[in-house]
């Protein structure tokens, strides 16, 4: 089973965010609830937690890249 790591809804009028930091590399094991990636909007930084436990199989966007709400940042297997 795979689970998508999504950019959440970021509040009023915010549509985009920048990837600030991945806390894990591809292939590493993660536990549900652990901070996986930090993203920044124009106003604030946001920690995105692992939606489930498993192996971080794929990272789609790297530090510094811009992503929109709903984008799949990566995949957990």
């Amino acid at each position: 089973m795979t689970v998508n790591i999504l950019v959440p809804n970021l509040g009023n009028e915010v549509t985009e965010a920048e990837i600030s930091e991945w806390m894990f590399d591809e292939g590493e094991q993660v536990t549900e609830g652990e901070v996986l990636v930090v993203i920044s909007t124009t106003k604030t930084s946001l920690e995105i937690e692992a939606p489930s436990g498993g192996r971080l199989a794929k990272i789609n966007f790297r530090e510094g890249e811009l992503v929109e709400i709903g984008t799949v940042l990566g995949i957990i297997e």
């Binding site: 549509t15 985009e16 965010a17 920048e18 909007t41 124009t42 106003k43 811009l66």
Partner: peptide
């Protein structure tokens, strides 16, 4: 967008 150009906040 504000992520690509300097905003008033910046």
């Amino acid at each position: 967008s504000g992520m690509r150009a300097v905003t008033l906040r910046d």
